[in-house]
Design a protein around this nucleic acid. Structure first.
Lengths: 337, 337
DNA sequence: GATTGACGTGCAACCGGTTGCATTCGATAG
DNA sequence: CTATCGAATGCAACCGGTTGCACGTCAATC
């Protein structure tokens, strides 16, 4: 009655061999090098195998060949909407090559991440670390043991895939400048984030080129709440438009503005980053889109290339971003009428 | 220069044994049954081990013990916002017991799901299948080989964790009735979905109890777009409030209503399901919340219990839902002064 | 002083595959 | 008729651990 247990006794290669009247080796070869065997032998073995529900044991195979057929993917927070599309794409890419993927959630902690990597090391052929919290040193140490690909983390010598926000941010600034804005504000994310640093720099540069004033307001963590919380600071700058570190922050800002009777985009323009919300906000959010799915796919693909012994050298893939104009940007109030 | 390769040669147990001047077995025991060895022997071995960077090989251990230390988690779509919190919670729960988790994305296809399960079988101790697309028969077959827990899928005899929307939906209806609504509409999701069937039934029952008229409008797939698309149908029913299959659909409906100049909640009330958007919409969405994270935790916990040989019998865990009132519900226009 | 037992450790088989090498056998060549 | 060769298959070692059992040592017991 109990449903527990029932494990272990999966049929083994010996079971197949015995009922087929051949040796273990032959069964093995029937699966791995059918060409080496007689055609009808192979057919018979496969037939028997599937009839008794035999599936080669991944673990045993891995032990003897060293080819685990597994890879690991580690992210800081599965629930952060930026990651699911990335995870999904990486997943499917690995699947195309019949790899199984371990998922690790570092919970924003380098200790946890280090623990996970160690746990994974002995059963994967390679790993992808997203926005890793580890030190360069630890990353290099791990990369010595197994092929490693980084996402949004730039460590020279380690293959990495980076989302280059510069282009999209420049487009956003050009867009705002064209609408007539003269003073904008960048609402920054975590100081330690590579992406944040890059975006802030891009805003500064872009603003200079378009002769816009730029203020910086710090939202400690990237979230809806913190976006909502910094609205007073934003309004205090006198700016007429904001570029937020990410969409969640932008959305919080929109709510905060609405609470104060500031209408978007009539009175104030808002631009997000990451495009994780699609057109789902109201008004729908103008944002810098970055194809996080493509990022995941590229990283996994790069890793698989390394596993295929195709040397990738000091790969540094960057992915472009682009502005998606929706309905939260408009000319500043002063320009009207 | 190339960063590829560098795999394999992780230090082995023999390496440690050799430099420690002991046998393989002793090293093994130093890790698994330290109490059986001399205290200083253990200390020395562990010291040497960490100094040469030795970590026990998960795969080899699994092969000889049959305890893989891995579990698999399969979902139809990682990118569906309902799943990430669930995945995250299941992840962390497994981690507490030092289990690694494989993530599988069935891509809404039973073939893909079946393939993944077979791939996982030989390297996991058990698996959690979320909203499985497999037939009862296949599920039972797999459950024979490895402990299996289902989420939002009700197969008698197989342990399962189900989100019971009934309570939350009833609360929602009571809430709408109290506000003075007389005619509501349920915007349904996929016909094949267990959750959808349950929610629709709950709406029907609740409406009867509160003597409300209820119409059903079908949104084929649960998405922002389809929600937006069915707005004309919704308005055609003459209802003054809608309960949507999920939050994405609800959000699409809100946008569709706004496009037509129908103001929420002044002219029309909207209630979502799943609470995946938090308070991030504007106006913030009243919704039936369901703690998908707790669902993931419970399912993984149940699986681990089974692995611990604690028989769980024909477990059928149901999780309650509850209404979260935010700003998309208000009295119907007619009721107002 | 011999017996007993606890303790610490080594030996070797085993988990379920893979693979280099040896073996068998029929066919073709000489 | 025999030497040769290639195709098909078996043997056994190995991957890196785990674990039942045997062995040796030393102290407590009679």
């Amino acid at each position: 009655m109990t449903t527990g247990k029932g494990r272990k006794d999966l049929p083994t290669m010996m079971d197949v061999a015995r009922t087929a009247g051949v040796s273990k080796s032959t069964v093995s070869r029937a699966f791995t090098q059918p060409g080496m065997l007689g055609a009808e032998t192979v057919a018979r073995i496969l037939e028997i195998a599937s009839s008794i529900g035999y599936v080669p044991n991944h673990t045993a195979r891995a032990l003897s060949t060293g080819r685990y057929g597994n890879v690991a993917l580690v992210v800081p927070d599965v629930a952060n909407p930026f990651f699911p599309p990335l995870i999904r794409a990486a997943q499917m890419e690995a699947d195309r090559s019949d790899f199984c993927v371990f998922l690790g959630n570092s919970d924003e902690s380098w200790r946890q991440e280090d623990k996970l990597v160690d746990r994974f090391l002995s059963q994967v052929e390679g790993l992808v670390l997203c926005a890793s919290r580890l030190t360069d040193e630890r990353i290099r140490a791990h990369a010595l043991k197994r092929p490693l690909v980084l996402v949004n983390r730039d460590v020279p010598g380690i293959p990495r895939v980076l989302i280059d926000s510069a282009i999209g941010v420049h487009e956003a600034i050009a867009h705002l400048a064209e609408l007539g804005h003269k003073h904008i504000v960048y609402v920054s994310g975590p100081a330690s984030s590579w992406s944040n640093q890059q975006r802030r720099a891009a805003v500064r540069l872009g603003a200079r080129q378009h002769r816009l004033d730029v203020s910086i307001v710090a939202a400690r963590v990237p979230s809806y709440e913190s976006g909502r919380a910094v609205v007073p600071d934003i309004l205090a700058t006198g700016a007429t438009a904001a570029i937020a570190f990410d969409d969640l922050t932008a959305q919080g800002i929109m709510t905060g503005l609405a609470d104060r009777g500031v209408s978007v985009p009539a009175d104030f323009s808002v631009v997000g980053c990451d495009d994780v919300l699609g057109a789902a906000t109201y008004p729908s959010l103008t944002t810098v889109s970055n194809r996080s799915d493509e990022t995941g796919r590229a990283a996994m693909s790069l890793l698989l290339d390394m596993l295929g012994s195709r040397a990738v050298g000091d790969a540094r893939v960057t992915l472009d971003t682009y502005l998606v104009v929706r309905n939260t940007t408009a000319p500043p109030p002063a320009t009207r009428s």
